[in-house]
């Protein structure tokens, strides 16, 4: 019968398509918008952050970077606390992405100091030699703020005329870095996740020169971009004449110094590798 009635067929096909649509696309709004899932600490974007986000969209950063940390060991240890519904309520559009050619950025905020981002964005290979990220030095041009107020209004984000005035003289790169630092940092997860190292710490490799080469290799890969090839310091402080005890250097490397812009390397490297790199730093200083 259907094979002879095109209009009835069309209506039936549409109805068939709409069943799954209603249940899996329309109904979830109710679950996702549940007021219980709101997170009070999560704030809307400031004008500068929003402009940064729009540049992120314009450049198609989401083609290589995701912004959602899954509740899986490898994700949480590598990127930080898993993502929550309430953290994305101001994201129009969402930018979760689908391919991690580069690392996830959901929690990049606060991981590195601003200076790291400026240098990395302009020339990624200067920081991460074998990175395949394009150079975004051209973002060092004046930020176009003609539409900023209209954007803030359209999204119902609070702002003052002074905020817009403050954008004068900012570059696109300033906006991008402001956006990076906002990502995932509204909730105090970094503090909660900071690994507390308890008990007495003793360098297992003290006076052991056989692991120096391995320590140097780790240092070159993970530390040199901020502290310099020769530990002379650059974005981070010089380590050339560090006079802290081994245990303290270990503690800082393992758990990070969120206030000082030092990332935690404990989850990523593990105790053994951290000790090896501490050993290398301290040996370098004693030389």
């Amino acid at each position: 019968m259907l094979e002879k009635k095109p209009i009835i067929f069309l209506l039936l096909a549409t109805a068939t398509i709409l069943i799954g649509t209603m249940i899996t696309m329309v109904a979830p709004f109710k679950w996702i918008n549940d007021p219980k899932l709101k997170i009070a600490e999560v704030k809307p974007y400031t004008p500068l952050q929003l402009e940064g986000r729009d540049i992120y969209i314009r450049e198609g950063c989401n083609n290589c970077h995701t912004q959602t940390v899954r509740p899986l060991l490898a994700d949480v240890e590598r990127y930080g606390d898993y993502s929550k519904v309430g953290e994305f309520v101001y994201d129009q559009p969402f930018l979760w992405g689908s391919r991690r050619t580069g690392p996830d950025l959901a929690r990049i905020g606060g991981k590195y100091p601003d200076a790291w981002h400026y240098k990395h964005m302009a020339d990624p290979q200067s920081m991460v030699p074998r990175s395949n990220m394009p150079k975004y030095a051209f973002l060092q041009r004046p930020l176009d703020t003609a539409l900023t107020s209209r954007k803030m209004k359209a999204l119902h984000f609070p702002y003052t005329p002074a905020d817009i005035e403050a954008l004068k003289g900012k570059t696109e790169l300033d906006a991008m870095v402001a956006y990076m630092q906002k990502l995932g940092s509204d909730i105090p997860w970094r503090k909660a996740a900071q690994a507390a190292v308890i008990g007495e710490l003793k360098n297992p490799y003290q006076e052991d020169k056989t692991v120096l080469a391995e320590g140097k290799a780790i240092y070159d890969k993970e530390c040199a971009q901020c502290h310099g090839k020769e530990l002379q310091g650059e974005i981070g402080p010089s380590l050339a004449d560090i006079d802290k005890p081994d245990a303290e250097v270990f503690r800082i490397t393992y758990g990070g110094l969120p206030a000082g812009g030092m990332p935690a390397f404990g989850d990523a490297l593990g105790k053994d590798k951290v000790w090896k790199v501490v050993n290398y730093i301290k040996y370098h200083q004693r030389r």
Binding site: T24, I32, N33, D54, E87, Q92, P93, L147
Partner: peptide
């Protein structure tokens, strides 16, 4: 979407809602 200018608009949905609509 919410048009801002001829060349810029924002999705009408936010966050997880936008993600779910997008992948539907």
């Amino acid at each position: 979407g919410i048009p801002i200018s001829l060349t810029k608009s924002y999705s009408a949905y936010a966050g997880a809602n936008d993600a779910n609509v997008q992948w539907w």
